[in-house]
């Protein structure tokens, strides 16, 4: 499928408010956040999902992109450090450039840290969605640079972990450079007589 690029087309933002079971919905009034999102500029459609990252949740995002002709997506769920790659892949599968995604962190930065203040947490969640939509409206499609990756690895440290890593990598066909600070590999393991649980020698 050809990747759609942004142009002069009218902005159509889809907002997906995730309840994360009760992780978010236990503190934040997700329905109120979803209703609020509908009032924001260029928002074409809003969904309130139980788990946006689940298979049915992802399917719903994909379906919505196609059915509602969305060209920006806001997922209001957890940290982008956790699920940005997940939803970027969803956008790509639906034919949208993955950089047209913005996330609002309603879980780590909101529901989990304001558990005793559901009203204030809901207000904050609305703000976070509002900020995310504002940024999403200005997102542009990006092209990722593809660079070749060398088939060689550096292992720093020749103790038991470094030795195992070097052997596994080399057996898998990669050239390995094993750098060891001391005159011999072996590390602390080499100093140990018998080792548990097998009670045999370590070297």
């Amino acid at each position: 499928m050809a990747t759609r690029e942004e142009g002069d087309e009218k902005l159509r933002v889809g907002v997906f408010v995730c309840q994360c079971g009760l992780n978010i919905a236990g503190t934040v009034d997700c329905e109120a956040v979803a209703e609020f999102a509908e009032t924001l500029d260029d928002v074409a459609v809003v969904f309130n999902n139980r788990y946006t990252c689940s298979e049915p949740g992802q399917l719903e995002v994909k379906k919505a992109i196609q059915e509602h002709d969305l060209n920006r997506v806001v997922v209001a769920s957890c940290s982008p450090l956790m699920h940005e790659p997940t939803f970027r892949a969803v956008l790509a599968e639906a034919g949208l450039n993955p950089y047209l995604l913005e996330m609002a962190n309603l879980r780590e930065h909101c529901s989990w840290v304001h558990m005793g203040e559901p009203d204030k947490a809901t207000d904050k969640a609305k703000d976070l969605v509002k900020m995310a939509v504002a940024r999403a409206r200005r997102l542009r499609a990006q092209k990722e640079m593809v660079v070749p990756i060398r088939q060689k690895a550096l292992v720093i440290g020749g103790g038991v972990a470094g030795i195992q890593a070097s052997l596994d990598l080399a057996d898998a066909g990669y050239q390995v450079y094993l750098v060891e600070k001391e005159p011999s590999i072996g590390g602390i393991m080499a100093q140990i007589d018998k080792t548990y649980p097998t009670m045999d020698c370590s070297i």
């Binding site: 080399a170 390995v176 070297i203």
Partner: peptide
């Protein structure tokens, strides 16, 4: 340990540090 020393695809840089 000895396997590391003789593996054709492992270059062992002992007594060395990353600079």
């Amino acid at each position: 340990m000895a396997d590391v020393g003789r593996h054709p695809r492992i270059e062992l840089l002992a007594y060395s540090e990353v600079d």
